[in-house]
Design a protein around this nucleic acid. Structure first.
Lengths: 248, 248
DNA sequence: AAGTGGTCTAGACCACTCG
DNA sequence: GAGTGGTCTAGACCACTTC
C-alpha cells in the first residue's frame, strides 16, 4: 500500500483513543515503547504523536508521559470553508438557491481581499442557504475574475461551489481566513431569512485562497441567531511538526 | 544562552518575511540552503519552517520551494483566552469590574464543562468589561472549586484573572475550546451594556484547561455587536488556528 | 537514579516540480 | 535530470518529571 508510516501509527493511536482504550487523562505509552512496538524510529513516532497533538487530542510535558486531553474529532478544513461540507459533517441536509449571479467591478474592499487591481470585474453572487429546509444563511460572495466563468457554469441548485471548483477545474482551497462578528439584520437579510429587521445575525466573512496564496473568493455569510455555533480549539502546546490534510 | 536552535531560525525567518525581504508569493531559500547558512541540520531547519507553516505564514508543496502566504501576525493563544491580553495586543485599554462573586452549586452544564461531580460548589462571577471606557462585554464565569479561593482573593479591579492565577498559583491555561454564536440581549445584558433589549450580541463561550486537561473555568462572554471581531485562520497544511504563545 | 520528552545531527531514499 | 520537499533511520545529549 502507499502507506505513510507516521500517519498509519497516528491513525492507530487515534482509534485507540476514540475507542476508549485510553480514556481522557490516561497516559500514552512512551515514545520508545511505541517505536519498538511499531518497529519504527523514534522520529517517526514523534511525527505521529505530533499529528494528534495538533488535533488537540493529546498533550505533553517534558519529562512526563503524553496524556489524552479529549475525544471529539475536530472539524476538518473543508468544513470551515464550505457550508455544504459542514452540514454533511454534522448530519444535516443542506440546500441552496442562487438568487442572483452578476458580473460587476469589484469594490475597494473586494479588490483588496481578492488581491485584484481596483475595479477588476468580479462575479457577485447572492445565495440563500437552507438547513433541513429552514432558511438559515444569506451568502454574498465575490468570486475572483479567474474563477468567475467556472462558477457561472454551475447549475442553479449546486450544492457546493468549492466542491465544484475542485472537481471541474482542479482549483482547491488551501488556506482560509475568517472574521466572525454579530450584527443586526438589514431589510434584505430579514426578508430572506424570514425574521424581523434588527434581529441578531452571526456573520462570518472569509477569504479562501489556493495553496499558492491566490485568493479565490471573499464572502459575507450571515446566519440566523441560534442556527449555528462556531467551534474553535486552541492550545499553547507547540505544534512542532505539521500535519497533512486528507485534501482532495 | 538558553536558545533553542529551531526557534531562533524560525524567528529570523519570520522577521525576514515581516520586514518584506520575502514578499507574499516569494520563494524561501531551500532547506539545504538554510541548513548551510545556519550550520544546522536539515531536520532542525524543517522544524523551524514547520513552525511558520503552523502560523499560516508559509505554505509548501512537495518538489517546489516554500512560498510566503501572508504577512500578518496571528493572535497568540493568550489573546483568545484573556480579554485583557487581547485588548493590550490590539492597543486598547481594558478595565473591568466584578459585579458579584458568589459560591453556589454547579448547574448540570457547568459541572459537565468543568468535569466536576454534579452539584460541586463553584465560584460564579459576574463581570463587566470596559474597552477604552466603553461597556463592551458581560462575562459570566464559573470557576472550578479548586481555583475558587485564589480567584476570590483577587482585588476588585483585577485586570486579568488568568494572569493572576498564573502568577500567584502557577495555574496556567494550556488548552481552550470556544463556542461562538449570536443572540439577542436579555434585560440584564442590555442594562449593563447600555443598549436596548434584543440588540445583537456576539457570544463566546469557552472552557480553559490546564496542560493536563483539567478544566479551570467555563465562561459565557457577551460582546456588544460591532465592538469585537474574532479572527480565525486555517489551512489544509497546518493545524487550524494556533501558534505558540510567548508564555513564560 | 531512572524514565521520558525536547532538541539535534548526519546520513538515506523517494515523490514531485520545474526548466 | 537536477533540485526540492516528504519521509525515515539510528544514533546523541539535555531538561524535566517521577519515584
Amino acid at each position: 500500500m502507499g502507506t505513510v508510516r507516521y500517519l498509519e501509527i497516528a491513525e492507530a493511536l487515534r482509534r485507540s483513543i476514540l475507542s476508549g482504550e485510553y480514556p481522557v487523562g490516561a497516559q500514552l505509552p512512551s515514545e520508545s515503547d511505541l517505536a519498538a512496538r511499531w518497529s519504527a524510529s523514534r522520529g517517526t513516532v514523534r511525527q505521529a504523536v505530533a499529528t494528534l497533538a495538533a488535533e488537540g487530542l493529546i498533550g505533553s510535558r517534558q519529562g512526563a508521559r503524553r496524556i489524552v486531553l479529549r475525544h471529539e474529532r475536530k472539524h476538518s478544513f473543508g468544513e470551515l470553508n464550505s457550508f455544504a461540507q459542514w452540514a454533511e459533517g454534522v448530519g444535516h441536509q443542506a440546500a441552496s438557491r442562487f438568487l442572483s449571479r452578476t458580473r460587476r467591478p469589484a469594490t475597494a474592499e473586494e479588490a483588496d481581499r481578492l488581491a485584484l487591481p481596483p475595479g477588476t470585474e468580479i462575479l457577485a453572487v447572492l445565495r440563500l442557504r437552507l438547513l433541513d429546509g429552514e432558511p438559515t444563511m444569506v451568502e454574498r460572495t465575490a468570486y475572483a475574475d479567474w474563477v468567475a466563468a467556472a462558477v457561472e457554469a454551475m447549475p442553479e441548485d449546486c450544492r457546493s461551489v468549492m466542491d465544484g471548483l475542485a472537481n471541474e477545474s482542479g482549483i482547491v482551497a488551501h488556506y482560509g481566513e475568517h472574521l466572525i462578528d454579530a450584527l443586526p439584520a438589514g431589510s434584505e437579510d430579514a426578508r430572506l431569512l424570514e425574521i424581523r429587521r434588527g434581529s441578531p445575525l452571526l456573520r462570518q466573512r472569509h477569504v479562501s485562497a489556493t495553496r499558492t496564496g491566490r485568493p479565490i473568493e471573499w464572502s459575507d455569510d450571515r446566519y440566523r441567531a441560534g442556527s449555528v455555533t462556531f467551534s474553535v480549539n486552541n492550545s499553547a502546546v507547540a505544534t512542532p511538526l505539521e500535519r497533512r490534510a486528507g485534501d482532495r
